[in-house]
């Protein structure tokens, strides 16, 4: 008899592959978005089955909370201002295909070269857990053993929002949408609850699955709901605070990394006695940055007061 859980895994894997095909082949754009959201749900379940609840948490927060909303807004913009598709030069297509083939080839090469029964780095991580300052191996790896990579990931988000603010400017003039009495009551309940759960995920990250990225993504959902209900309207005067929020995580992370150097220590080599405090400080600031940046990415433009003449065009 086949193990039922194995059957479940096989079915889940098949469903994910089928969904990926469906997302790319279906003709209705809206159906595409919904299928992609379902794809995210199934991927989160797959990560759970792979015993990676940290990744599942991030996938759950990003997939259900943010990606769907971002894609729906994009579709709305495309419908509002349909632009004739610009023909792509053949050379660009060939170059892109070449790059894709290169990446695919590299990945296949790396996959084939990897020894099947390698012990991996898990024993090394387990040996050094005591020196890491935290109790959860994933957090120890992300914030201590390979903190440089994590810093670069935070920088990616910063670069993304800088690019968005360069491309798109203006404030939203539209009136608040009428969502009714029931929704107002719900948001009064849900917004504080999301803040509490987001902070909880940050806090629990030291000992169990959770951490800065998961907490930040959940907190960003608060920003999304505030922006959607027009409970908060970004103003030009708020830009310094937003900029401070964007930079905070990168600045504190890099600052700590550099300041601990010296006296025989390398950058990122936290003194063992203060490792926990420093990691918590970095995680807290990075959480704020991620939340603010993701919400700003959803807003999608720098809140600049555009001159009237330009607006009436």
């Amino acid at each position: 008899m086949v193990e039922p859980l194995l059957l479940f895994d096989a079915l889940l894997g098949l469903a994910i592959a089928a969904l990926a095909v469906a997302v790319l082949t279906v003709h209705d754009r809206f159906a595409m978005i919904v299928l992609f959201i379902v794809f995210g749900l199934m991927s989160a379940l797959a990560w759970v089955r792979l015993s990676a609840p940290d990744v599942a948490l991030a996938e759950a927060a990003i997939g259900t909370g943010l990606t769907g909303a971002l894609l729906l807004t994009t579709l709305h913009h495309i419908r509002a201002a349909p632009a004739a598709p610009v023909p792509v030069p053949g050379g660009v297509v060939v170059a892109n295909l070449g790059l894709c083939a290169l990446i695919f080839g590299g990945l296949a090469f790396a996959f084939l070269l990897t020894p099947l029964q390698a012990p991996g780095l898990a024993p090394a991580v387990a040996q050094n857990m005591a020196a890491s300052g935290v109790g959860h191996p994933v957090t120890a790896v992300l914030l201590n053993f390979r903190a440089y990579d994590t810093l670069m990931e935070v920088v990616v988000l910063l670069a993304a929002i800088v690019a968005v603010w360069m491309v798109e400017r203006g404030t939203v003039q539209a009136p608040a949408p009428v969502l009714g009495e029931i929704y107002r009551g719900f948001s009064r309940l849900a917004l504080p609850a999301i803040v509490v759960i987001g902070s909880y995920l940050l806090w629990v990250g030291a000992q169990a699955p959770g951490g800065a990225f998961q907490g930040g993504a959940v907190l960003a959902a608060v920003g999304l709901l505030l922006l959607l209900g027009r409970l908060y309207r970004p103003q030009p005067a708020h830009r310094p605070f937003a900029r401070a929020g964007f930079v905070l995580g990168t600045a504190v992370f890099a600052g700590v990394a550099l300041l601990v150097a010296g006296g025989g220590r390398l950058p990122f080599e936290y003194p063992a006695a203060h490792a926990k405090t420093l990691i918590l400080l970095i995680e807290g600031m990075v959480t704020i940055s991620i939340a603010v940046t993701l919400a700003a990415l959803f807003h999608g433009r720098e809140p600049e007061a555009v001159p009237v003449s330009e607006k009436s065009e």
């Binding site: 969502l179 009714g180 029931i182 929704y183 719900f186 309940l189 849900a190 609850a193």
Partner: peptide, 16 residues
């Protein structure tokens, strides 16, 4: 509790 409240509110919003 959260699923119950949010699915009720979502049902209401969709119906509207």
């Amino acid at each position: 509790f959260f699923v119950a409240t949010s699915s009720a509110v979502c049902g209401h919003l969709i119906a509207r």
